[in-house]
Write a protein that binds this DNA or RNA. Structure first.
Length: 219
DNA sequence: AGCAAGATTAGC
DNA sequence: CTAATCTTGCTA
């Protein structure tokens, strides 16, 4: 079916040195920089076997993120130390940290900072690029294309992301993030959503020109 | 073992 | 504005 020279290369991965290098650099540096840099990057996922649309490549352009800072941020899941749930936050950067919330939703994060330091960036919304039909099948009827993966829970639903994805390396494989190759969009900052502490910290970043940015609750 | 809270969402 | 829904982590 696929003929790759390297066994670790995932189907659909560009065998391009420059692209790989840029992608590796995506997760380096401070959490806030990573959060900004992720705007305009591509989230890509291959729908797992045994599910509807298995094998389909689903893709979206990241348009909204939130930074959860190391050490000083009381709203960061790592703030009160390492637990079973947040363990991957304390591991290597560039991994998926996926958690379950409110009894029904998953949220996808990218781990940041060096091993031993817990921090992450929440991916809040992507603009669908490919696999729109597969996304739609997972979502409620009547949702317009541009809102299929808008909001962290909706995004995970559309991309079939759940706790099985926790700890996965996002640089390659069936779920990965590819750095934006061309120009970066205008990135604006705002308060993070849904918090009870550190509510005013301007650590939410979004593409001001995208319709796929999530609708935020009124202040 | 029991319990309260939660990085959300859809529906009224 | 609020109910839904259940895992996690903390306390006893």
């Amino acid at each position: 079916m696929f003929s790759h020279h390297h066994a670790t290369m995932a189907p659909g991965q560009a065998p391009n040195k420059r692209a790989r290098k840029t992608t590796a650099a995506l997760f380096k540096g401070h959490t806030i920089d990573v959060a900004r840099r992720l705007i305009g990057a591509t989230l890509e996922r291959r729908i797992p076997r045994g599910e509807p649309d298995a094998g389909t490549l689903v893709r979206g352009r990241i348009v909204e993120t939130e930074a959860y800072l190391p050490l000083v941020d009381p709203s960061c899941h790592a703030y009160r130390g390492r637990t079973k749930r947040n363990a991957v936050m304390f591991g290597d950067p560039g991994r998926a940290y996926v958690y379950f919330i409110y009894g029904s939703h998953y949220c996808l994060n990218v781990t940041t900072e060096r091993p031993g330091t817990g921090a992450a960036v929440l991916i809040r919304a992507v603009e669908p690029i490919a696999g729109v039909a597969a996304m739609r099948r997972r979502r409620l009827a009547g949702v317009p294309d541009h809102r299929l993966a808008s909001g962290p829970g909706n995004l995970c639903r559309a991309f079939s992301i759940d706790r099985r994805c926790d700890g996965k390396d996002l640089r390659s494989g069936e779920m990965r993030i590819i750095a934006a190759s061309k120009q970066r969009p205008i990135v604006k900052a705002a308060k993070r959503v849904g918090l009870s502490v550190a509510q005013d910290w301007p650590l939410r970043f979004y593409d001001a020109g995208s319709r796929s940015v999530s609708k935020t609750p009124a202040p």
